[in-house]
Design a protein around this nucleic acid. Sequence first.
DNA 1: CTGCAGTCCTGGTGGC
DNA 2: TGCCACCAGGACTGCA
Length: 273
Amino acid sequence: MPELPEVETFRRIMEKRALGRTVRRVLVGDRRILAGVAAVRLSRGLVGKRFSAALRHGKQAFLTVEGGGAVGIHFGMSGLPVILEKGEPEPPHSRVVFRFTDDTALVFRCPRMFGKVRLLQSANRFIEQRGLGPDALAADLRAFRKAMKPRKGAVKGALLNQSVLAGIGNVYADEVLFQTGIAPETPGERLDAEDHRRLHGNLRRIFTTSLRLETDWTAVPKTWLIPNRNRDGSCPRCRNPLRRGTVTGRTTFWCASCQSDRSENLYSGGTSR
DNA sequence: CTGCAGTCCTGGTGGC
DNA sequence: TGCCACCAGGACTGCA
């Protein structure tokens, strides 16, 4: 499930292996993966040109094309980039293949077809048109607080909303709420400045740790929620069974004893962490 | 404006 | 063991 750290890892792979090579041909294995561009136009826009930069904003990745334009890649829930060496066969579910003149290739694999490939005038214009919020990793505390400005709905909904902050998905939303001790359904307006400060700090730490581990979920600390988010999983802090339910339409794991909905703050100070 | 349910799609899994 | 219904996930659409 590519969220911000996974997409940043993908960006680095593409940066290392897709830049500076000339596109020889573009093969579209399934045109449903294309958004707003026909296969022919995508091909005509790229053949003979090189990718000049690999960018990322939230969960969106972009390969800028020399001479103007960019390819936008959204990985959906199962997408990933695969680099093919010369002579290496295409893996299953190769939806778009960017074949270079040196016979290596960049493949967009996307088994579950939730991803999208676009041909854009510019990455920044796309980000603006989509109304994407600030990148969740790049945002400083000031930008984070501004984005999370008091909202009535569940705090998890705000974290998942890409127009509030770009890059947080279901798994990391649960993780940051767990580590901050905030229940996922807590109304945003109930959070105070200290909650925001801790959410922001924890989010940055979680993302940078995940990046350092190259997003290998088997290697994340046992004290995190991620290794325990399964049926009959238990809280790594208090060992109580984790709750599993639906918040803003998404499967959610949380610990009822370690995560507070902040309502008791109204009449008892200092009990929550 | 805001939040939320429904929808897309397919591989993996739970349950029988 | 084999089969199948069901579920997950991100983001868009449409509704209240």
